[in-house]
């Protein structure tokens, strides 16, 4: 029984950073902007969160800084996409490189100071029940954000506007919605979420930073949004499933079972491809104007 609970707890823990990033990305993609730079946004959040939490000793300040950093990087993407009207995909790839270079070299400069010592960087919520619910505050926040984002997207007037912008920006504009402003705000929110997801890795999980610490999790979040058909609940379910796949890999590895961890690692990506090809067909739920400049 404990084993099951431990596995579930690991699933939630591993799933949370991806979930945070994916929830923001779902909102942004529903507004018609595809953020391939999400990996870089997470990395920026991971870095800012770690440095702030480490230097102030306050994980809460770290979380705030990570959201700011994430929003800032996403704002650059929004500027490129909305103002310059540059290609979304190439701009996003460029942002990944920028974030990798910026955080990597900044961390090198700070490395020696950090090694000298660090404060407490743990951000835990009160424990309600053993194991399963012994999660950090950020995990709680991540999972509680799902119904909130569902409500925003599917039941609120603002959400309706945002979806209209993603489906048919021309019509939305004609009916008085400021398309660029809507997308810009969505980008800021998505950046804050992804930044917080990055901070989860460096503050709650490892209390350290490395230039590859996000390790493709931003791309996993992109996959989760596709697999979840751009809905809040679907995306969350995909994130939990991906969390379970990674948790299973760790447990198999720890138990010495003869299962190759690489197969489990590939699972999220393969499943996303299979779903796109066989299950979803053309009913992918993708907004009609996704990735197109306006």
């Amino acid at each position: 029984m404990d084993d099951v609970l431990l596995f579930l707890a690991a699933t939630l823990r591993i799933g949370s950073p991806v979930l945070l990033a994916a929830m923001g990305e779902a909102v942004l993609e529903r507004s018609g902007v595809l953020n391939i730079g999400i990996e870089g946004v997470m990395l920026a959040g991971a870095f800012a969160g770690f440095v702030t939490a480490w230097s102030t000793g306050s994980p809460l300040l770290g979380a705030g800084a990570s959201m700011l950093a994430g929003a800032l990087v996403a704002a650059v993407l929004a500027f490129m996409v909305l103002r310059v009207k540059a290609d979304q995909i190439v701009s996003g790839m460029a942002l990944n490189l920028v974030a990798m270079g910026l955080t990597g070299s900044a961390y090198r400069a700070l490395e020696n100071h950090v090694r000298a010592g660090g404060g407490s960087t743990d951000l835990r919520a009160p424990t309600f029940a053993p194991i399963l619910f012994e999660q950090t505050a950020l995990t709680w926040f991540a999972f509680l954000s799902v119904p909130a984002i569902w409500f925003y997207l599917e039941r609120s007037e603002r959400g309706l506007e945002l979806r209209a912008v993603g489906e048919h920006p021309g019509a939305a504009q004609a009916s008085g919605v400021d398309v660029a402003a809507c997308r810009f705000k969505a980008a800021l929110a998505a950046g804050a979420f992804a930044g917080l997801g990055g901070a989860f890795l460096t503050i709650s999980q490892t209390a350290s930073f490395s230039s590859h610490c996000t390790n493709g999790r931003g791309f996993v979040a992109l996959a989760a949004v596709v697999l979840g058909r751009y809905s809040a609940w679907g995306t969350a379910a995909a994130c939990v499933f991906f969390g379970a796949a990674f948790a299973a890999r760790d447990r198999f590895q720890a138990s010495g079972l003869n299962v190759h961890p690489e197969i489990l690692e590939m699972l999220p990506y393969l499943l996303t491809l299979f779903a796109l090809v066989f299950a979803l067909r053309r009913r992918t739920g993708a907004p009609a104007a996704l990735g197109k400049p306006f």
């Binding site: 460029a94 942002l95 990944n96 490189l97 920028v98 974030a99 990798m100 270079g101 910026l102 990597g104 070299s105 090198r108 230039s211």
Partner: peptide, 8 residues
């Protein structure tokens, strides 16, 4: 890592 920054 500066190289990545420059490329981006």
């Amino acid at each position: 890592e500066v190289i990545f920054l420059i490329e981006g």
